[in-house]
Amino acid sequence: MDLPKNRFKAALKAGQRQIGVWCSIPDPNSIELLANCGYDWLLIDTEHTPIESTEAVALLRAAEPYPTTPIVRPGWNDMVDIKRLLDGGAQSLLIPYVQSADEARAAVAAVRYPPRGMRGVSGLSRASRFGAIKDYNIRAEEEICLLLQLETLEAIEHLDEICTIDGVDGVFIGPADLAASMGHLGNAGHPEVRAKIVETIQRLTAAGMPAGFLSADQEMARAAADAGALFVAVDLDTALLRRSAVARREEWR
């Protein structure tokens, strides 16, 4: 059995924009429904949800038959959490709240086997199809996509150095925490925050680093895409559900 190809990673390398949806509903049926909607990627969020690694694996299975790439966000830049998700079959990870080049290097080490990293070796994990993929431990790195989430002004100060670190495949700008760090808690749409987001995406693009962004505000999502963002989450499952439910209620009031 061959190592599964990571379509998302290949697309970023080719400079092809990838459109996604943020998923926080811990239900395989919800993931399967969205996986069949034509999006390039789905983000399974375990940072701001009660989703545990065992549940994340079930969500990965639900998405697997469809032409979309599931990306998992662990709760923290923690090598144990990262190891469990990788062993569970995740090939693409978005690491939250990376603040420095050292933290970026730690994330890289967590997804690589020794001697290039610190990932614990298991020969019979789901990632290796329980041993069916020949030389999985040697080849796994080829198809692992590591995305780092920069969410504060402090993190952005280290942007140039982070972009030079081998093993980083993309950098995602987190608008909500960035707004908070700029003194605009709860107001990611503030003009100063929008300007900083666009500026940062332009810097990433100029450095040749794929940039990512999330917003249910379609004007802001377009602005990020126009600035060069290659992987853009254009909505959230919970937001889609709530907007649709409220709109239908108003039709009948």
Rank of each mutant, 00 (worst) to 15 (best):
A180W: 06
A180T: 12
S181Y: 09
S181Q: 05
S181M: 15
S181P: 00
S181H: 12
S181W: 11
S181C: 14
M182V: 08
M182P: 02
G183H: 09
G183M: 14
G183Q: 13
G183R: 14
G183L: 13
L185K: 15
L185V: 10
L185Y: 04
L185H: 08
G186I: 13
G186H: 05
N187R: 12
N187W: 02
N187I: 02
N187G: 02
A188R: 11
A188E: 04
A188L: 09
G189S: 10
G189W: 00
H190V: 04
H190C: 05
P191Q: 06
P191M: 12
P191R: 07
P191H: 04
E192K: 15
V193F: 04
V193R: 01
R194V: 13
R194Q: 09
R194L: 07
R194P: 00
R194W: 00
A195I: 01
A195Y: 03
A195R: 14
A195L: 09
A195C: 11
K196R: 13
K196I: 08
K196C: 11
I197L: 12
I197G: 05
V198G: 05
V198A: 13
V198Q: 02
V198C: 06
V198K: 09
E199I: 09
E199L: 14
E199C: 11
E199V: 10
E199K: 14
E199Q: 15
E199T: 11
T200P: 06
T200G: 12
T200Y: 03
I201H: 04
I201L: 15
I201E: 03
Q202T: 14
Q202K: 15
Q202N: 07
Q202F: 03
R203E: 10
L204D: 11
L204Y: 04
L204C: 15
T205M: 10
T205S: 15
A206Q: 13
A206C: 14
A207F: 08
A207T: 07
A207Q: 13
G208H: 15
G208I: 06
G208Y: 08
G208L: 13
G208D: 13
G208E: 09
G208K: 15
M209T: 09
M209W: 00
M209A: 08
M209G: 03
M209D: 10
M209V: 10
P210H: 01
P210M: 03
P210Q: 01
A211Q: 10
A211P: 11
A211M: 12
A211H: 05
A211L: 11
A211R: 01
G212L: 00
G212K: 01
F213I: 11
F213G: 03
L214G: 01
L214V: 07
L214M: 12
L214C: 04
L214H: 06
S215I: 04
S215M: 02
S215A: 09
S215E: 01
S215C: 02
A216W: 03
A216I: 08
A216Q: 06
A216S: 11
D217R: 03
D217M: 06
Q218H: 09
Q218F: 05
Q218A: 08
Q218T: 07
Q218K: 12
Q218S: 10
Q218W: 02
Q218Y: 06
E219C: 09
E219Y: 01
